[in-house]
């Protein structure tokens, strides 16, 4: 690690200094295959991603809508493993020492590897944070401890159902940033109204001083801009993953560079939306 604090903390400090919100992108590791996925990952920072969420594919992604379900299936069918996902990060880190990488997924593939062993390997590969969708605060101590020991943030999620009673539970022990799920639903579903996102973010800020990233249902540069006006970062996942799905429809995957260019072009449009959203910090 360079400088002080984690890559995630430094990135949010830099964004604050720039007076803009961050742009967080999600792709599933190994989708549609290892080579293409690595090419997309490498190009994300230049396309405007400030933080990268990298999905760990799982057979039973019960919080995800069809787009990310299919991405998981494509990756697993192409032979993606946890070792390969970690190798992707290690490879990415050779050229990029600054862009935070947050692994996102479900607990079983981590649990089966062992929380300590997984955390150690992830830290060695250059992972900065973890988002584990099915690990609420009541159950996350067994991963939070080992992750913290190697400098990895276990990012807590909040939801529209997180009320004043629930938020203190979520804020206690949170680190890195808060990931706010802006709609009650699965990834890639309906979009939240701007007003409700603003109110949710304001409520979260009463209980946590951490940056708040907002995700779920953000599909266009305009929607990303709208979220960027009220939150510290906007997350886009399904809409990016759908570009990959469309390109491989029919079975044949285009050459990795060609597919990566097309996906990264869309990422640039989204990034422009976020960067143009405001000129002063929220």
């Amino acid at each position: 690690m360079r400088g002080t604090g984690s890559r995630i903390a430094r990135r949010f400090e830099a964004l604050k200094a720039e007076g803009r919100a961050g742009f967080v992108t999600f792709i599933t590791a190994g989708d549609p295959n290892a080579e293409t996925s690595a090419a997309i990952l490498k190009g994300l920072p230049a396309a405007g991603a400030d933080i990268i969420e990298l999905g760990m594919p799982f057979t039973d992604p019960m919080a995800d809508g069809p787009a990310i379900q299919h991405a998981s299936q494509r990756a697993l069918a192409a032979g993606q493993t946890m070792d390969r996902t970690l190798a992707m990060v290690r490879d990415f880190r050779k050229a990029d020492g600054d862009t935070p990488i947050v692994l996102m997924g479900y607990y079983n593939p981590i649990y089966i590897r062992g929380a300590e062993r997984f955390s150690r390997q992830a830290a060695e590969a250059g992972v900065d944070g973890l988002i584990v969708v099915d690990l609420p605060p009541e159950e996350d101590a067994e991963l939070r401890g080992p992750a913290a020991a190697v400098g990895i943030d276990l990012v807590r999620l909040t939801a529209p159902t997180s009320d004043e009673k629930r938020l203190p539970v979520l804020a206690a022990g949170a680190s890195g940033f808060i990931y706010h799920v802006s709609v009650a639903g699965v990834t890639g579903a309906k979009s939240a109204a701007e007003g409700s996102v603003a109110a949710d973010v304001a409520r979260i800020r009463r209980f946590s001083g951490l940056p708040v990233a907002v995700g779920f249902g953000i599909r266009t540069p305009d929607q990303a801009a709208s979220v960027a006006r009220v939150a510290d970062a906007a997350v886009v996942g399904s809409a990016i993953v759908e570009r990959i799905a469309a390109a491989v429809k029919g079975g044949e995957s285009p050459p990795p560079d060609m597919l990566a260019r097309s996906v990264l072009g869309f990422v640039s449009e989204l990034a422009a939306g976020v960067r143009g959203a405001r000129t002063v910090p929220a």
């Binding site: 099915d134 999620l157 159902t161 629930r166």
Partner: peptide
Amino acid sequence: DRGHFGIYGGRFVAETLMPL
């Protein structure tokens, strides 16, 4: 009281569902 049978059981669900 947290739903554990030894190491088994518990509540491994998305945060949206927890209050429910």
